[in-house]
Nucleic acid binder design. Structure first.
Lengths: 337, 337
DNA sequence: TTGTAGGCGTTATCAA
DNA sequence: TTGATAACGCCTACAA
């Protein structure tokens, strides 16, 4: 037994020092407890002297609620998810909730990770996984605690999803390209399993109207490299677009670089190009990317609202699916800004 | 009392169903406990039928150890820190440790956040705060649990710091510029409080030798915008460098864009330019940035090694300060790659 | 190998 | 307003 094992100061220690009962100490640290101001002060002084810090663990045992929320993230290589995480952590803190962070590579990791988290009696799960397989849905639904997703298609009595209005944004993108006189549009999609990407593509096609017949569709995996490669391949095949909508900003940046390097095409002079997410790098001068802002603050706010409701005492399973409008941010790549 | 309040399945429930004592259930789920294989199997079956999941909270009460590590991050706008966080979370998981994430804006937030975390009886704190003020050091040192920092200067019996060899990298950067025939070097520093940046600058100056007399020093705040602005200002003042070392990749990207847009200067033709961190965006074609890779994996590995030692039963305060060599990654901005 | 019983540090209930 | 006492769910001697 080394120095680490010095027993932390408990309420009993404080009680002894302050000459009161242990329950009095508990009351001194509780908001809505009736205690004489003098007693409380005496206790707080004793507590400060001893360096006492209330232990939350026993309260968790009694209440069955830990005040912790499991936050499951996938690849953080996309700055959009990082930003979402950042805001989420702050918003949860403001609600007095702690974040138990889990990073997940595949469904297997998810299962074992959730298992672990359940041992800690987390109150809810928030996930920003772009991808929702059936296995994931099953795992999350089985938890029987509130689950909140971003841009997913998962459903179930305990599952809520906060989405950006992907389809509407796709329509707006199409209209913008049409306005700019685009006649050879290209759609750079994300992975098929990314439902947000699918919705963006659907909206884009719908918005193109008659022009949709000429639409060239490419597919990437939401990374910069995949955008670069997809466009390089397209150029090699002799396709030279004059307008392009990319399912996210990372791919859009790759597309811009490929257009310039492999095709000598510049945005917006030769190609009117749009992305999605409004990541910081899109605003960097080398890209100056027109894009859609999902409104991370509003997404997170909606998520936390649902969470608050779901965690209300006596609330049953909560399932809501708010949709948040994405806002066009015009910069140079579309000839705006 | 709504649906959420259905009492979770406990070991007593399982015991009843399996027709054994509660302690038998506890043993069935514990590694090094003597239990008859048949009994264990019977119990596991009953547990599966009931959907029992061992509750870790009581064990925390008994042992005083939660298996949770507080991870404190500052701005996640720098992808380098994101990558470090990502690796860290994975590595801690592999050690059976959970991550309680805290996002901190200022010393005040830190204090209250640490207070909260202590209530959860976290076993240690890992922080990737770029900035270590005296207040932060005091707050962390007062915890009396192991604290591990990245690239900090914090000291104390409970505090360890894992650093990249910032000074040595600075020397290497200077030598590389000299080799490339640079005669008008520029150093773009980060904030003064960033000790890693200071060390990089010291090494750079030392490595320049006689050339150091002509060194132009700029200061940014580690963001893209600050790099862009600092270089724009420099160009306005008529300074036209032929070599540049930037304290991090974000500023380096800003510098490259400013050199091109505001000065018509290209890298590497006109300016040999280096960054630090090896963030993914540096590899994007628009930047093709030569940089130093801190070796996140090795940094994290070192941190976890220290942590494992510090969390060994009976270990006293552990304080180590390993330094990890940063590796030059040559790409186009220095004329290499 | 198995069961019984005590205790971990709080909060909540009840009596004083 | 206070203090004594019973939980909370599991782990761990100790006894059988």
């Amino acid at each position: 037994m080394g120095a680490r094992d010095v027993r932390p100061v408990t309420s009993v220690d404080v009680a002894k020092r302050a000459g009161v009962s242990q329950s009095a100490v508990s009351r001194a640290f509780s908001r809505m407890a009736s205690i004489a101001p003098g007693t409380r002060e005496k206790i707080l002084r004793a507590a400060a002297e001893l360096g006492y810090r209330p232990n939350r663990i026993p309260a968790i045992m009694l209440s069955g609620r830990s005040g912790m929320v499991g936050v499951v993230v996938g690849g953080l290589s996309n700055p959009f998810y990082v930003s979402a995480l950042e805001h989420l952590v702050g918003a949860l803190r403001d609600q007095g909730l702690q974040v138990l962070l889990v990073h997940v590579d595949d469904a297997l990791t998810l299962d074992s990770a959730l298992d672990q988290l359940l041992g800690y009696r987390i109150d809810a799960v928030v996930t920003a996984l772009a991808i929702g397989s059936a296995a994931v849905a099953r795992a999350l639904g089985a938890l029987r605690i509130p689950v909140i997703c971003f841009n997913s298609r998962l459903t179930g009595p305990w599952i809520s999803t906060v989405s950006s209005d992907n389809r509407a944004a796709g329509v707006v993108a199409a209209r913008l390209l049409a306005e700019r006189g685009v006649v050879r549009p290209v759609w750079l999609a994300g992975p098929l399993r990314n439902v947000a990407s699918v919705a963006r593509g659907d909206g884009f096609r719908a918005g193109l109207g008659a022009l949709a017949g000429d639409l060239v569709s490419l597919r990437g995996d939401d990374t910069y490299e995949s955008g670069y490669d997809a466009v390089s391949g397209m150029l090699t095949r002799g396709v030279r677009p004059d307008g392009m909508f990319c399912s996210n900003d990372m791919m859009a940046c790759g597309a811009i670089d490929a257009l310039r390097e492999r095709g000598g095409l510049l945005c917006p002079e030769d190609v009117v190009l749009l992305g999605y997410d409004n990541i910081p790098q899109g605003a960097w001068r080398a890209y100056d990317l027109t894009t859609f802002d999902q409104g991370v603050e509003r997404l997170v706010e909606a998520a936390c609202g649902i969470l608050a409701e779901a965690l209300t005492d006596g609330a049953g399973p909560v399932s809501q699916n708010p949709v948040i409008e994405a806002l066009l941010v015009e910069r140079g790549s579309s000839g705006g800004g």
